[in-house]
């Protein structure tokens, strides 16, 4: 098997993506962060490093694991669960 990228892996999953965003990033707080832990702990690559070393976030592929919430020590992540019934919907688990 050749190595697969995370975005290609996410593409096989079943999601019911809500229009409401369940995780918000306080980008101001990220400006004072030099560890960028979220980039490594997010299994769905929802956090990306922008061109000017800024962090961007996209909620669509979120697997709702909670890792970013626990790891970020700058309280930069306003973390909630997606609305009931929305988000990842595992068919195997």
């Amino acid at each position: 098997m050749s190595t697969m990228k995370i975005e290609d892996k996410l593409a096989v999953n079943k999601f019911d993506i809500d229009k409401d965003v369940h995780i918000q990033l306080k980008e101001e707080a990220c400006k004072n962060c030099d560890v960028h832990s979220c980039l490594y702990v997010c299994p769905a690559d929802c956090f990306k490093l922008g061109e000017s070393d800024n962090i961007t976030f996209a909620y669509e592929g979120c697997l709702e694991c909670g890792s970013c919430r626990i790891v970020c020590d700058k309280d930069a992540i306003e973390w909630t669960l997606p609305r009931a019934g929305f988000g990842i919907c595992y068919q195997y688990g």
């Binding site: 697969m4 996410l10 999953n13």
Partner: peptide, 17 residues
């Protein structure tokens, strides 16, 4: 490990704490 997976089809990717 690889020989056990050969020609398999990935049908789900998941994560949990």
């Amino acid at each position: 490990v690889a020989s056990f997976l050969k020609d398999g089809k990935m049908v789900e990717y998941s994560a949990h704490l």
